[in-house]
Design a protein around this nucleic acid. Structure first.
Lengths: 168, 168
DNA sequence: AACGAGACGTTATAACATAACGTTTCAGAG
DNA sequence: CTCTGAAACGTTATGTTATAACGTCTCGTT
């Protein structure tokens, strides 16, 4: 019956980031930037690091505060928004629309195709990658002659851990 | 191969609103409110009418302006946000997260389950209803032990009309 | 060394949303 | 018909998120 989830693969999430860690992610981004002929400046790198280090989707103004702590010199909103725009354009980050917040993206090449699950309780997020789902959305759109440029798929609720925790 | 779109049914959209019109939608809402023992006040009704009359997803502050035109007496933000909250709680409207804007909903009973396509060019929107898609998302979530409370599925791009128009 | 594009700084303001609390409205009880 | 309590609405203030506009700096290239 329910053959549907077979192709789903949870790829990242705030909980799966114990080991592989920020540094490797940033290295990947650096390499991709070199290949692509774009610059991962200090600021952009810092923002990316902060996103990976955060346990939750991070707001732009929260990033501003974190950068201030880290750099002594404060940074104004446009600066951070520009960095975020860059990171998103390169697939290194995604915006969570239902939260006005940003998360790092584990698969820069496929950043447009993710599904996000967000826990209302612990605020953690799961990045999901499901080809079947993607195809279906694309078909829906194509069927209507619609040309897709951006997708937003966000599932908000309670994650497994918080469900069992609250079932005490 | 692509059997996927078979169950899709475009239900509403800003273009399909020539005939059935605002009045009938509002009547439906009134009846549902009576059944449910909640009140469709003048303000709430006005907001719902404005949403149906608009060709595009409508922002809260845009609604404030429209209400001012209509009522002589201006209305403050909290008032409109409360009306929107009510309409959404009853399934009469949905929020388009990627736009910070609101659209009326043709199927109040199933308002949580819609997919929205939004045209970047003409700003029109299409409300889509696809049971298969819904099930799949639910399965994805269930597979991870995630308890879903809210879904956001928005596809942004260029609608068929604007695609052919720009192909001149 | 000069140049030019892109990145960043800075100021101001726009756009979206809610907290907190007072007043009005209205359906139902008496 | 009046009273009453809950819900709706008014009002003021403020919080939060995002961008416009323009100047300066940086850095790779010529």
């Amino acid at each position: 019956m329910t053959f549907r989830s077979m192709q789903s693969r949870p790829c990242t999430g705030s909980k799966s980031r114990e080991q592989p860690a920020t540094a490797e992610r940033v290295t990947l981004a650096m390499n991709l930037c070199r290949e692509r002929g774009v610059r991962l400046t200090t600021l952009r790198q810092q923002v990316l690091e902060l996103l990976w280090q955060s346990a939750r989707p991070t707001g732009a103004y929260e990033l501003i505060e974190l950068l201030a702590q880290r750099n002594s010199r404060p940074v104004a909103p446009p600066t951070v928004y520009r960095a975020l725009e860059f990171l998103m354009s390169q697939g290194f980050a995604s915006r969570i629309e239902s939260r006005n917040a940003y998360v790092p993206c584990a698969h820069p090449e496929r950043c447009q195709e993710h599904i996000f699950l967000i826990c209302n309780h612990c605020e953690e997020w799961i990045e999901l990658d499901d080809a079947r789902f993607e195809h279906q959305l694309a078909d829906e759109a194509a069927h209507l002659g619609f040309r897709t440029t951006q997708r937003v798929v966000e599932v908000v609720g309670t994650c497994a851990d918080c469900v069992s925790a609250s079932a005490d």
